[in-house]
């Protein structure tokens, strides 16, 4: 087996319990280098919990197996190893766009002037040209999200975790951001694990879509997306897209019904 075929992330029997609440129960998941994997699932099923663990912020339950770049690891060994973009932008109000973007580089101990120069060069690609000196409160929601994405990209790690990055955006901005993200991803050649609650988004972006069960979360369904890249906007009307979407929606609906529990019986 060549190193390129070894998964960058491999989770087996992966569980997490918070006191009485079991958030994850036996997640099995592999991500290949360079792959774009999307995760959909009903809200509260443990998607963010999964990301927090892979980002190194929480330990999984005993018995969970996590391999990262071929090595068996504890979650906290992953701190500083993956670039994590949480659900909210979490920009620092006292830092302008550039200084928010270089925050992870500063923490790594990079030269600040060089980091700033690099960020300055990246601004146009992220649609932020001319906004270097703006502060978060001067930006729209879409722009703040792009700053947060740029910050994530500047933290150059092979694995990127994006937790519903476009969840709060309006539909139009969202489709534009999706196409833009694919371009940036192809150029930067990163591995992406992407959470969304939007099935269209999951199919449009992903090489592989995972559907999670209702809490406690596990992987219910895994489907390859055999649609050509680069992907264009009219893809959403292609027959393959629609049949895949139907299958995924059925699976999600089944799980969402469980969330509503007894009332649906």
């Amino acid at each position: 087996m060549t190193p390129a075929e070894e998964p960058i992330l491999d989770l087996r029997k992966f569980s997490k319990t918070f006191g009485e609440v079991q958030a994850l129960d036996g997640v099995e998941l592999t991500v290949q280098p360079g792959e774009f994997v999307t995760v959909v699932g009903p809200s509260g099923c443990g998607k963010s919990t999964l990301f927090n663990i892979v980002a190194g912020l929480e330990e999984p339950d005993a018995g969970s197996v996590m391999r990262f770049e071929g090595q068996s690891v504890h979650a906290k060994q992953l701190l500083g190893k993956v670039s994590f973009m949480p659900q909210r932008d979490l920009l620092l109000a006292w830092r302008n766009v550039i200084d928010n973007a270089i925050l992870p580089l500063e923490i790594e101990g990079a030269n600040r002037a060089e980091a700033r120069a690099e960020a300055q060069r990246m601004l146009p690609e992220f649609g932020l040209a001319g906004f270097a000196d703006k502060y978060p409160h001067e930006l729209s929601g879409g722009m703040r999200q792009r700053v947060a994405l740029m910050r994530t990209f500047m933290f150059k790690r092979d694995l990127m975790l994006l937790d519903e990055p476009f969840g709060a955006l309006d539909a139009l901005t969202r489709t534009m951001m999706q196409r833009w993200l694919l371009e940036v991803w192809q150029k930067h050649k990163r591995t992406v694990l992407f959470i969304t609650h939007d099935v269209d988004e999951a199919i449009f972006l992903g090489d592989k879509v995972l559907v999670m069960t209702a809490r406690p979360g596990a992987i219910k369904l895994e489907r390859k997306v055999d649609l050509p890249r680069p992907r264009s906007a009219d893809l959403v009307t292609a027959p393959e897209f629609i049949s895949l979407k139907r299958e995924l929606l059925d699976a999600i609906e089944e799980e969402s019904m469980k969330t509503f529990g007894p009332s649906s019986h």
Partner: peptide, 12 residues
């Protein structure tokens, strides 16, 4: 904001 603390920790 604890989430901001976590973000910084994720950067190491």
């Amino acid at each position: 904001d604890e989430k901001q603390v976590q973000l910084l920790r994720s950067f190491g």
